[in-house]
Nucleic acid binder design. Structure first.
Lengths: 326, 326
DNA sequence: TATTATGGTGAAAGCGATTTCAACGACAGG
DNA sequence: CCTGTCGTTGAAATCGCTTTCACCATAATA
């Protein structure tokens, strides 16, 4: 492995000069040329390990996600990756498989590990999370939740759910049921349910608390909850779901119970999943700019790291949403 | 930042002793105890940068994927992440967005960057790829393609497609069309088409070359190709697709042209997408163990890195497949 | 008793970059 | 001629860890 010293010797300069050449410090034109040729000749590339040790910066960003095989997460990471690549950073991906404690574990790990900053695609935020975020030595941005005192890029789930509920209340006759997720997930659990309820209520068609079920983000859990709902309350004519994935499950359940093709008109979701849209022609759902949230969060993080002027650094950013098919 | 020397001083030993304690070398019981307490007291964690510089190993594995928001890829990375986490490594993710030259770029980047090994989720393998793989300084495993001279974990696309074609030939009357992908992708492009054709032929119902179209892995491309096929050859009664995603597009096209619910019986795919399965009840498709391929590839890679005995290290592994809904 | 293992130990030499610092040649102004 | 800048330069000191090596007890063997 050719090192800086070799290049320096070949070019007849000191390694300090090579380092300056590489980093844009004082260097005369002729030496720069000699160094350039020596580098080409030897095929030298600098060791990022040594550089990291000396400078304390690794150009690595830790990204913590709850689940890697989900459309929303992969769109977010696509956005993160886009910005990272463009700005000379790389992504260290940590998958927690929906285990909140592993999030904290990674938060700890990353700090003393080689990342310059962290993007946390958050689900549940416990006090322990808050503490870990607070005491984080590297800058951190959250995606998906709005947490006091932390930089966040999020969507207004309450507002979106309210609008969806309000819009649906008018066009559904009969009972509406709701399949949510754990309220520990403030955004997808609490806010969406509350917003949806409020929207229905405002339209004069309040949600019956007995018709609320809890799923676990998976298609199968949506299916199970919907089957159960339909058997307990056959007069339910519409099932709103906290995610498109669970809506897909509910859709299958309705098709099985009420006949093929029925579900499409009786289900709503959140997230505007591409597959679901294509296969059903589009159920009522909320479109979030997942890719945008990745892009915005990462830009914010990198701006503070690179000390970009004119940028106010870490702040909280609420992104817009769009009702679909209502 | 508390460093090893601080811990050593507090414990009244040399930093060499601390290092040995941390790495399981010779250390007496009482010193071990003193060191342990000193570490707890100071909250010391060792700098992985310094460690990496000294040992030359970063415990980082570079993973190159063609596209991050696709179900197959996220299942593969889920498998990779599982093994990596269990064995004390982390994943450095690089997304090429289906640009073959960026794959080579990352291959170069990773070698002189801080990864101990590479997993390449491969699509197209050009000569340039072969060269880059050949000259790779760190061990590398490919997923999804079988390339001579490289360690590969792959599925037998030809065989699977053959079986699918053979099975379908019998139960479809009328013309069968095919929407494939670029043959530069040997596995998903060339092998699947060839296998499918051979399967149909063997069953006495050969594929009309005029009814072959090319998509680009996306749902929309499947939709477009199917619309075009149906308008040019309205007597086509079945459209086989090289991926489930394109099959979803074709399904929508058929539903639009021939009436809702029609598509389900007239389309086949590859990959056994969970959404598609749930929403349609299941079109004929091939189930691949994507997660398994990630697991197997990573285990293989880590075995060679960690020098696990009894394991023969890098080799090529063909995984099985399963016909679904035929 | 003389010797050889054996289990422990710390000083010191790197790993390969960056960065400080003192110094140098040239050149302008006084 | 002397002094002060200015643009460059290389020697040397880190960064924080691992690992070799020489060495020391103490126990086991000859």
């Amino acid at each position: 492995m050719v090192k800086m010293k070799d290049v320096a010797e070949l070019a007849g300069v000191s390694s300090a000069a090579v380092s300056r050449y590489l980093n844009g410090g004082y260097i005369s034109a002729d030496k720069a040329e000699r160094i350039k040729q020596a580098i080409e000749l030897t095929g030298y590339v600098r060791s990022s390990q040594a550089r990291a040790l000396r400078t304390g910066s690794t150009k690595l960003i830790g990204v913590i996600v709850p689940k890697i095989n989900s459309e929303s997460v992969s769109r977010i990471t696509a956005g993160i990756g886009q910005v990272l690549g463009r700005r000379g950073y790389q992504m260290l991906l940590a998958n927690t498989d929906n285990a909140a404690d592993r999030e904290i574990e990674y938060l700890d790990l990353f700090q003393n590990h080689p990342v310059d900053g962290i993007v946390l695609v958050a689900t549940m935020i416990t006090d322990e999370h808050r503490r870990a975020i607070e005491s984080c030595r590297v800058p951190i941005v959250l995606i998906g939740q709005n947490v006091e005192g932390a930089a966040c890029v999020y969507h207004d789930d309450y507002e979106a759910a309210f609008e969806l509920g309000h819009a649906l209340a008018g066009r559904v006759d009969g009972k509406i049921a709701y399949i949510g997720v754990t309220e520990a997930d403030r955004a997808a659990g609490y806010d969406r349910r509350r917003g949806f309820e409020a929207g229905l209520r405002a339209a004069g068609n309040p949600l019956d608390a007995a018709l609320i079920r809890l799923g676990s983000f998976t298609l199968d859990s949506g299916y199970g909850a919907a089957r159960e709902l339909l058997s307990v309350a056959p007069d339910v004519s519409f099932i709103a779901c906290a995610t498109d994935t669970m809506a897909a499950g509910a859709l299958r359940a309705i098709d099985e119970v009420c006949g093929m093709g029925e579900g499409i008109h009786r289900v709503s979701g959140f997230g505007d999943n591409a597959f679901l849209r294509a296969l059903t022609g589009g159920i009522p759902t909320v479109h979030y700019g997942y890719l945008t949230s990745g892009v915005e969060a990462t830009n914010m993080l990198l701006n503070t790291l690179d000390g970009v002027e004119g940028e106010s650094g870490l702040k909280t950013l609420k992104l817009g949403h769009q009702l679909m098919n209502v």
